[in-house]
Each structure stands twice: as structure tokens, then as C-alpha cells.
Nucleic acid binder design. Structure first.
Lengths: 129, 129
DNA sequence: ACTAAACCTACACTCAACGTCAGGTTCAGT
DNA sequence: ACTGAACCTGACGTTGAGTGTAGGTTTAGT
């Protein structure tokens, strides 16, 4: 598939794909004959993964550091140990984020309840129709 | 307390505080005599809250939309209903994020296990000391 | 052969969220 | 009265994550 279709399927612009390629997030893809890029499905999967990791709040740099795990084995034992370190740091971060996120959720719920009762109350006193 | 101390306590720079004030995230604070800003503890709490919401991935704009909940009641019933809408959208987003985050955590754990076993294996075959 | 749609590179621009710098004012202690 | 630390504003610089545009090339359909 060409860049246009890939972009459409992944819900990003072709400029974004060029950008990801430039910063090393997405491999340059096959370049047949002239300069056209041709992608297969793994490129699409990679873009999806990138989007998912972005939603978790990772920067593109951080994503670059972990994404290859999903698509190839780290090369050599040095690489593996480095990757292990990254993963362990990442899981600690994730746990902290989970804690904060659940607390935030609780907060939201209690505020929703509060708002609802305030609205109810206002309705009953101001305009009982 | 003055801006320097507030900045130190909250772990941000004074320029960040100026910036937050300029975009309406932080009230201008008391300005006695000459232009010096004097803050009380709620300013500190507000900065903490902002930091927490940032860690959850909200933009400063989004934070501005919800932070007042924590410090004052929304005014009028119209405001309350608007706020309620924001809160409910936010909680849906939060739930989605929680789902993704736990999945990501699971992924990380399985990758960590995989890496550990690969490293172990490599150690045993390559250099059995 | 021709044309429109899709592609290419390269540079410039945007926007958020700050940081840096310069030049001036104010406050606290001596 | 004086000095150094803390403060002020305003303009400009920076980084991350892209977007826009210009000018040229390639491909697919007719």
C-alpha cells in the first residue's frame, strides 16, 4: 500500500508518516523504482501501536525506545539488558499513573454526584416544573 | 509567600507561574504596594493539582476547564450543567485510559519476563560463569 | 502522448509550554 | 544611604510534534 492509504487507515496525515520516518519511529519502507514508499500491514500495526502509546502519555522519544519490542527482538545481550531497564522504569511509571488515574476517577465521580445534587436542588427551589 | 518560595515549593519556575497566570490558570494573586505577587496556600494547592492533572495527560486548556471545581462552586445552574457534561466526558476518557493503561502494563510485564528469560539463556550458553 | 492524482524533497511555519535575557524596580539588612 | 537578593515586564529563543507550501516527479487511466 502507498503512503496515502496507510495514512488514511491509520488516521494520520502523510506528513506525520514522513515525520515519524525522519525521527526514526517508522522504517523507511520499500522504495521501488522511483522514490515512492510502499508499506505492508506491519507499518499500519506500528502506527496503531504508536497511537496507543501516545494516548498513554509517552513522548515519541519514549515510544521509540520501546516500540521495537513489539516488532523484533532486541539484538544482543547488551541491548536486552538496556531494554529491560527501560521496561522496568516504564512499569514503575505506569503503576504511578494507574494510582493517580484511579484517584482522579474517584474525584470525578464524587464531583459528578455533587453537581447532580446541586442541580437537583436548584431545580426544586428555583423552578419546580 | 512570594513567587520565589511558591515556585520552589511547587517545583516549578517563577516563569511558569507567570505563564500560568497569563493564560488564566492561576489567579493574579495579591499585589501589595508595588507589583510584587503574594500568594497563600491555595495557590500552592492549585499548582499541585495542575501538576497532577498534567501527569494524567491533560493539556493546560483542559485543566483550566476543570480545575475550578476543586476551588469554588460553579456559578449558576447553566454553569453546573456545563461542568457536569465536562465531567462525564472526562470520566469516559479516564475509563478508556485505565483500560489501555492496564493492558499496557500487562504487555510490559510479559515483555519483562521474556527479556529476563532471554538474558538468562544467553548467559548460560555464551558465558557460564 | 497526455493529464490528473498521488507522490517526492526541502524549507518554513504553527502551537503549546515553557526558558533566557535585558533592563529596570523593590525590599531587607547593615 | 547603600547594596545584594528578589522581584517586575517584555521581547525573543527553544523544543516537541507536527502542518503548509512550493516546485518537481511518477504513475495510472484514457
Amino acid at each position: 500500500m502507498q503512503i496515502g492509504e496507510l495514512a488514511k487507515r491509520a488516521g494520520v496525515s502523510h506528513r506525520t508518516i514522513h515525520y515519524y520516518e525522519r525521527i526514526g519511529l517508522l522504517k523507511p519502507a520499500e522504495r521501488e523504482g522511483a522514490g515512492y514508499r510502499y508499506y505492508d500491514d506491519t507499518a499500519y500495526q506500528r502506527l496503531e501501536k504508536i497511537a496507543a502509546l501516545k494516548r498513554l502519555g509517552l513522548s515519541l522519544d519514549e515510544i521509540a525506545a520501546v516500540i521495537d519490542l513489539y516488532f523484533e527482538d532486541a539484538s544482543g545481550i547488551k541491548g536486552k539488558e538496556k531494554v529491560l531497564g527501560i521496561l522496568e522504569a516504564q512499569i514503575a511509571k505506569t503503576d504511578a499513573q494507574l494510582t493517580e488515574l484511579t484517584a482522579f476517577r474517584r474525584d470525578l465521580e464524587s464531583n459528578i454526584a455533587r453537581m447532580k445534587s446541586l442541580i437537583d436542588q436548584a431545580r426544586r427551589t428555583d423552578c419546580p416544573l
